[in-house]
């Protein structure tokens, strides 16, 4: 069963522990700017929105990669960046219409969420269950995916 990160912005308090956990596990540093998940802060509305890759089926990043450095895990559906192949050209960072794959200046490679191999640290760090890890079918990413469909310039098969 494919699982995904289900994010409920209504439960997010903006504590940013997900960002801390992510950057610490992935980069060995408490540095939100290196986190694969980001919390957007809408002060005027007193709302916080955690935001990261949906592992979308279209995999814009994977398609745009010129050197085969991004693959889809056949079991989990997660899109993974292979550091040994990534040349740091950054084409994926402009191809992804969600802006969820970013260039890491310190490594010269791109980074994106990979569900920590099936045990996401952000989920464990979240004190309010604003981020949970559950079955893909029930995910609240549907809205995001619909939105994504609007950006798609390819599969509009009419027949």
């Amino acid at each position: 069963m494919q699982k995904t990160l289900v994010i409920d912005p209504g439960k997010c308090t903006g504590c940013k522990q997900c960002e801390m956990a992510c950057s610490y596990v992935k980069e060995g540093t408490f540095n939100p700017s290196k986190s694969r998940i980001r919390v957007f802060d809408f002060h005027t509305e007193a709302r916080f929105v955690p935001y990261t890759c949906t592992q979308c089926d279209d995999a814009w990043c994977q398609q745009a990669c010129p050197v085969d450095a991004i693959t889809t895990d056949p079991v989990s559906g997660v899109k993974q960046v292979h550091d040994n192949l990534c040349v740091g050209c950054k084409v994926c960072t402009i191809a992804c219409p969600f802006g969820t794959i970013n260039y890491n200046v310190s490594t010269g490679k791109v980074i994106k969420c990979d569900h920590c191999g099936g045990d996401p640290e952000c989920v464990k760090a979240c004190p309010t269950q604003a981020i949970v890890y559950s079955d893909a079918e029930q995910a609240g990413f549907d809205k995001m995916r619909q939105w994504a469909a609007k950006t798609d310039n390819a599969p509009q098969t009419t027949a």
């Binding site: 969820t100 609007k150 950006t151």
Partner: peptide, 16 residues
């Protein structure tokens, strides 16, 4: 700038 650049594509292409 290098963060979330793809969003620029997303906004333009989706004509939001």
């Amino acid at each position: 700038m290098s963060d979330h650049l793809g969003m620029l594509r997303g906004l333009i292409q989706s004509e939001t």
